[in-house]
Amino acid sequence: MNRNPEPLERCGQCQALIEEGEALGTHVPDSSYLHPHDPTRDGDRPLIACSPEHLAELMKAAGARPYLDVELWAGKIDRALATCPQGLSLYALAVKTGLTQDQIEQAALWSGRSVHSLGNPP
Score class of each variant (00 low, 15 high):
Tyr91Asp: 12
Pro52Ile: 05
His37Cys: 07
Asp102Trp: 06
Asp38Lys: 01
Ala62Val: 13
His27Ala: 10
Ile48Asn: 02
Leu81Asp: 00
Ser114Ile: 04
Lys96Asn: 10
Glu22Ser: 14
Leu99Met: 04
Leu109Ala: 14
Ser51Gln: 06
Ala23Ser: 15
Asp30Thr: 13
Leu17Asn: 03
Gln101Arg: 09
Gln15Cys: 13
Pro52Ser: 11
Thr40Tyr: 03
Leu109Arg: 14
Pro66Ser: 08
Ser111Trp: 03
Val115Arg: 08
Pro7Leu: 14
His116Arg: 14
Ala82Gln: 07
Pro85Phe: 12
Ala56Ser: 13
Ala64Trp: 02
Leu109Val: 15
Val95Gln: 06
Asp30Asn: 15
Lys76Gln: 13
Pro66Met: 05
Leu17Ser: 11
Asp42Pro: 02
Arg79Lys: 08
Asn2Trp: 10
Thr40Gln: 13
Gln101Val: 07
Asp30Glu: 11
Cys14Asn: 01
Cys84Arg: 09
Ser111Glu: 08
Pro5Ser: 12
Ser32Gln: 07
Gln15Asn: 13
Gly112Trp: 12
Val95Trp: 01
Gly25Cys: 10
Ile77Asn: 00
Gly75Val: 05
Ile18Asn: 06
Gly75Cys: 04
Arg79Glu: 01
Gly87Pro: 08
Leu88Gly: 01
Gly25Trp: 12
Gly63Met: 04
Leu58Pro: 04
Gln13Asn: 14
Glu9Leu: 14
Ser51Leu: 06
Glu20Asn: 05
Lys60Pro: 05
Gln13Trp: 14
Gly75Asn: 05
His35Gln: 03
Gly21Pro: 06
Asp102Gln: 11
Ala80Glu: 00
Leu88Ala: 03
Ala61Val: 13
Pro66Val: 11
Cys11Ile: 06
Glu20Leu: 07
Glu6Lys: 13
Ser32His: 09
Ala56Tyr: 03
His35Glu: 02
Ser114Pro: 05
Glu53Gln: 13
Gly98Trp: 00
Pro36Arg: 04
Cys84Ser: 15
Gly87Glu: 01
Cys84Val: 13
Gln13Phe: 15
Arg45Asn: 02
Pro121Ser: 01
Met1Arg: 07
Leu8Arg: 13
Gly21Thr: 08
Ser32Cys: 09
Arg45Ala: 15
His35Trp: 04
Asp38Thr: 06
Glu71Ile: 03
Val115Leu: 15
Cys84Met: 10
Gly75Lys: 02
Arg113Glu: 12
Gly112Leu: 11
Ala108Tyr: 05
Trp73Asp: 15
Glu22Thr: 08
Ala16Glu: 10
Val115Asn: 00
Gln86Asn: 14
His37Leu: 13
Gly12Tyr: 00
Glu20Phe: 04
Leu81Gln: 08
Tyr91Glu: 11
Thr100Ser: 15
Asn120Tyr: 11
Val95Asp: 01
Ser51Asp: 07
Ala107Ile: 04
Leu99Tyr: 00
Glu105His: 14
Gly12Thr: 02
Tyr33Asp: 01
Asp42Asn: 07
